[in-house]
Design a protein around this nucleic acid. Structure first.
Lengths: 340, 340
DNA sequence: TTGAAAGCGCTAACAG
DNA sequence: CTGTTAGCGCTTTCAA
């Protein structure tokens, strides 16, 4: 470590008063003579004194750190949510410690344990796509250590969470496709154990039902959210004897992989195959055709997650709330078939 | 804070030994009886003991935290570099505290001060685009607190840094344009005080010189790196009486804004205007035409920055090194004019 | 109005 | 081989 910084002791020595006097003066304790107070504060200022957070943390048993675990750092979705969390954290004078599970259960487990070791005051987590067993959160739940899930969630009766209106969003997507002339709507979903897969699937079914479209199981595929797998699955869909005229992709990666694959087959978007994804603003507008997409209020989701966290800090035993965020379907070109 | 966790004291009390015995046993000190050691370690395990990092930090004056300041969190470039930093940090049993300057000098200043207050052991920083005055790093430099810059750097004679081979990369870009038939090559740069603007500009000039192309000052524009400004500037370029037949954009944002703008004007890429950007893998391939781009080894840059940081930790006064990373020009379609 | 002492959890020097 | 003590920086009784 670099040179030791000035401590209360240093200030006290310099002024020939006791440490406690300095401590009090700096916090404007009324007991201390106004003049002395001023003098001490001036010296502190001059010497560039800042309280040592480690000492405070040790004393009060609080670190003012929140651990955040996301499936990856490089996706805009998570980056933006993290921004939202950071925003609220900063307002509460908290810092965030970010860990990435890289979509691996093992790394998620490891991160939970490591962050707890560093004595974060709690965790805000989005599950990795592999996570299918949720016991590793027991130590948090049993010890009343604040925990909040977002987007990909579990144990929602025990843990507060922030999710998108997945079912409703997927239902809207399906209906939008129908209204634009699509009749064979495919859905490329994620791992079946994830709530986002389940809920969007449910919305897809409701949408089909609304439009009185038949359900065809060969149009629903599960993918592991990697580009390769999404490409493979798109190719499979395009090789059906009766290919889909629309594809609904569960996220960024999936829909862009599908887009590339469709183009390579020589089919046109949206006329041969219309496309809608769950994705962010930026990507959707730089591709050609621009992508119709369900947009999450990511920054807001992060803020809400952090808010839930601080609710938890002040009352770790309150009944867990779930916040559902409204998404919006932003219609661009990839879903608008030119009617003949 | 949640329930207090078990401490050495708790373990000691339970076994009727002293705290120091427990402490030693847990660290396998040879002085302690093998049997006692085993017994203590078993209990620690059973009670789920983990050492309190605050206490350790206080004792050793080290927090094992690195502050990282980036211009933004949502750009792939920074996200990926952060991943690299995190990777090395974890290997050294360090954590990173991330702050975003949101390209604002004020926020950068604030972040530097806040992070120092939390007693990070040092900082790894990429300057905000507004940063034109570098005094706020004095407290670090004067107190031998480890500091490393990456990408956008300053005071390189005092502070170790990691940069791309900006000049060389820009030179290659210019020559590549020339070899593909471009003769009026525009350069949309960033704020002129940034090293990346200066060095890429220099490379651009060298490239022109290599190809014996005349320099035309109306083809060089500075932008504030926002989408709006980049669009505005592209429009300006497209309104010249003699419009450019190629545009070289200093980063992601700029080049995609240019791309959109060109399309809206009805011009084609690459035949009317060829395009090359400094950008990441993913974006480049999802657009149509796919984007020829200078690619940074971002993850590696992060790793190198972290390595420099740890060099600094072990010897805060060593002469600062600068590491230059090789970029590569990945040729795709946006720069390949179909020769007539 | 100020100081002395204890304690947060831990390690290390010194005793025994 | 194990215990006692001091101290990292700070707040907070309790005394004066």
């Amino acid at each position: 470590m670099a040179k030791r910084r000035v401590s209360l002791k240093d200030l006290a020595a310099e002024l020939n008063v006791s440490i406690s006097t300095v401590s009090r003066a700096l916090r404007n304790h009324p007991d201390i003579r106004a003049e002395l107070t001023r003098e001490i504060q001036e010296l502190a200022r001059a010497r560039n004194y800042t309280p040592n957070p480690l000492a405070m943390g040790l004393l009060r048993q609080e670190t003012h750190m929140i651990g955040v675990i996301v499936p990856d750092l490089v996706t805009h979705f998570y980056a933006s949510i993290i921004s939202g969390i950071e925003y609220v954290a900063k307002q509460n004078d908290y810092y965030i410690l970010i860990a990435s599970s890289r979509e691996s259960f093992g790394k998620e487990l490891e991160s939970v344990q490591n962050l707890l070791k560093t004595r974060v005051e709690g965790l805000i987590v989005c599950l990795s796509q592999e996570t299918n067993c949720f016991d590793h959160f027991d130590p948090l739940i049993n010890n009343e250590i604040p925990l909040v899930f977002f987007d990909r969630v579990c144990r929602t009766d025990e843990v507060p969470s922030v999710v998108a209106d997945n079912t409703e969003a997927a239902r809207k997507v399906t209906r939008h496709f129908y209204e634009n002339g699509c009749r064979r709507i495919a859905f490329i979903s994620g791992p079946p154990h994830l709530n986002i897969s389940q809920q969007r699937y449910e919305g897809y079914l409701l949408g089909l039902h609304d439009c009185k479209l038949p359900f065809d199981e060969e149009l629903v595929m599960h993918c592991d959210l990697s580009t390769d797998d999404a490409s493979r699955i798109t190719r499979q869909l395009l090789q059906l004897k009766n290919i889909p005229d629309a594809i609904f992709g569960i996220n960024d990666t999936v829909i862009f992989a599908a887009m590339k694959e469709i183009r390579q087959t020589g089919l046109t978007i949206p006329n041969d195959v219309a496309l809608i994804g769950f994705t962010g603003e930026f990507h959707s507008t730089i591709v050609e055709p621009s992508l119709t997409a369900v947009t999450h209020p990511t920054f807001e989701m992060g803020k809400e997650a952090a808010n839930l966290f601080f609710e938890r800090i002040s009352d770790p035993t309150a009944a867990p709330r779930q916040i559902e965020m409204k998404t919006s379907l932003v219609v661009r070109n990839s879903s608008m078939k030119k009617m003949l």
